[in-house]
């Protein structure tokens, strides 16, 4: 039998080394399997995350922050299992962001570059709500999401998706220029992307 345990962490803790949290992890058998996860992987400041694990011995949960550039904080969760100290349990990172880029490779369809994809539910969770969106594709872009649509020029911003969840299906369409139509190798970059502020 395995036991599953969970903890919620609020984000009001110390910014550098949040703390060493010692949790008793009890189980009745000596299973070699383990589960350790933190959800969601992307949050805003003050959002909570849910930590879950299965284990059969006492463990320590180490939480610390690392920084990337000026505006990205990664909150690192590491389960240290003294019972299996030689085992590497993959640490889990949560990004604390005010904005995130959604980016996909486009495909050719008739005279357009198109995308129709679900974004990663595990990474973005279901709590991130859109405030505004900027076209970062470097070309005109039709964007559809949550039953709403907008056409944006490069670097143009819109609030048409305000209040909708980041999660779900995103559809992009960008018309090819005449030169691109005649030779698709002239399409320098096949990526279509938007920058979302929460």
């Amino acid at each position: 039998m395995k036991k599953s345990t969970g903890l919620k962490f609020n984000q009001q803790c110390s910014p550098l080394l949040i703390g060493l949290v010692i949790v008793s992890l009890l189980a009745a058998c000596r299973s070699k399997n383990y589960h350790f996860d933190v959800q969601p992987k992307t949050i805003k400041a003050n959002d909570s995350v849910f930590v879950s694990w299965e284990n059969n011995r006492n463990g320590k949960l180490l939480i610390y922050d690392t920084y990337f550039g000026d505006d990205i904080i990664y909150r690192n969760f590491k389960l240290v299992d003294p019972g299996h100290s030689k085992r590497v349990i993959p640490p889990v990172q949560v990004a604390i962001l005010n904005k995130a880029r959604i980016v996909f490779h486009g495909h050719l369809s008739n005279d357009s570059l198109i995308v129709s994809e679900q974004i990663d539910k595990v990474r973005f969770g279901n709590k991130l709500i859109i405030n505004s969106i900027i076209n970062t594709s470097g070309r005109d872009l039709d964007i559809s999401h949550s039953g709403r649509s907008v056409k944006l020029a490069p670097d143009e911003e819109s609030r048409i998706f305000k209040g909708t969840s980041v999660n779900g299906l995103w559809q992009f369409r960008s018309a090819l220029s005449d030169k691109e139509k005649s030779n698709s190798e002239l399409i320098k970059d096949d990526k279509l992307s938007v920058l979302i502020s929460f």
Binding site: D37, K41, T42, T66, F68, I72, Y74, P90, P91, V92, Q93, A95, H105, G106, H107, L108, L113, V122, R123, S184, E185, L186, I187, K188, D190
Partner: peptide
């Protein structure tokens, strides 16, 4: 290597995808 279906170039941006597929793990941001 992620060869583009659009322009035939190697995008060199599939390393995380291959990692996620092989390990079955959700990739960390880093």
């Amino acid at each position: 290597l992620a060869r583009s279906s659009v322009n035939g170039k190697l995008n060199m941006d599939g390393f995380v995808e291959a990692y996620a597929m092989k390990t079955g793990q959700q990739p960390n941001p880093e």
